[in-house]
């Protein structure tokens, strides 16, 4: 009761502020918290007619079914491996770009290069994947270029072996430039005096990178790495469903694309929700783990 009285007094004191918050709260409740509550259908046998709470409760049936699913291993493997490859290749790339940009002295050249490599970030996923597909089909540019080295043309979009490399390399194209901004921002705060002092101490260029630039980047790298590890079981389905086809499901199908197919296309609402929930919980676990590890080793954490 005390809370309500305090709240009432506050509303009387700032009526406009509460009025302003009304639509915002309505949005968050309706489109974020209602779906969160709606995830309980993972534990029942949801049918649209019976409704969320009228359907029969089945406990962990769908989760157990997922663990026994013939695709379970394939989905876990693909989701995990795409992330591991992306961490190995996609995570260091923007850091390297930022360091190189920091070393670049020609200002106009630098901004031209930045403009070019930030651009793919603003082009739609559909267009980017359309270009990727066009380049990778049998008559595509990739085959033309490989042909110079004597390779036979292949329709790479239909090759199981090719899906992950295509996915990872095109990720570089899409995101590496843009992701470097955050590191460039971190470096813009580094005082020139540090570099001058290193000069006086006789540091060469490489040593300055190692002893001035990298330490300045370290806090940002750690935070980004924690966030990245927290997402180690997440692959968005947008790019996957644009690039895969039944021939490449074996190496391309990930948890989210499976949820989309089973849930939206085949209307197995409860099962797909259970798979999605399993994925979310797994991710949250990884985030906590990464955060804990970081706090132990570097005394940095997200919260």
């Amino acid at each position: 009761m005390k809370v309500l009285v305090k709240l009432k007094n506050d509303i009387v004191k700032h009526p406009w502020v509460y009025l302003m918050f009304l639509p915002v709260a309505a949005f968050y409740i309706l489109f974020c918290y209602v779906p969160m509550g709606g995830a309980v259908i993972a534990f029942n046998d949801y049918s649209p007619r019976a409704g969320i709470f009228g359907s029969e409760w089945v406990g962990f049936k769908w989760f157990i079914e997922f663990f026994r699913d013939i695709y379970f291993f394939r989905l876990m493997r693909n989701t995990f491996l795409l992330n591991v490859y992306d961490i190995i290749i996609g995570f260091p790339a923007p850091i390297l770009i930022a360091i190189l940009l920091n070393e670049l002295r020609a200002r106009h050249y630098k901004s031209a290069v930045q403009t070019m490599m930030y651009m793919p970030n603003f082009i739609s996923m559909v267009v980017l994947c359309g270009i990727i597909t066009d380049f990778c089909i049998t008559e595509g540019v990739v085959n033309d270029v490989l042909g110079w080295f004597g390779m036979e043309p292949v329709n790479w979009m239909m090759e199981q072996m090719a899906f992950k490399p295509i996915f990872i390399i095109s990720n570089l194209w899409q995101y590496a430039g843009w992701s470097s901004i955050i590191y460039v921002a971190a470096l813009s705060g580094v005082s020139q005096e540090l570099y001058d002092a290193a000069d006086v101490d006789g540091c060469g260029r490489v040593k300055k990178v190692l002893h001035v630039t990298l330490p300045a980047l370290m806090p940002t790298i750690v935070i980004m790495f924690i966030l990245r590890l927290g997402n180690i079981m997440t692959v968005g389905f947008e790019k996957v469903i644009l690039l895969y086809n039944p021939l490449t499901y074996e190496t391309a199908d990930v948890i989210s694309s499976y949820v989309y197919r089973r849930g939206v296309l085949e209307a197995n609402y409860s099962y797909a929700t259970a798979v999605g929930l399993f994925n979310s919980v797994l991710n949250f676990g990884f985030l906590l783990l990464a955060n804990w590890m970081s706090r132990r080793t570097t005394e940095q954490s997200l919260w």
């Binding site: 509550g37 989210s256 979310s280």
Partner: peptide, 22 residues
């Protein structure tokens, strides 16, 4: 409370199917 309500949604969401059903 209001800030928590909002920030929490950055870490957790209902997922594809519940959102679709909503």
């Amino acid at each position: 409370a209001a800030n928590l309500l909002v920030v929490f949604t950055m870490f957790f969401n209902g997922g594809l199917v519940p959102t679709y059903l909503t």
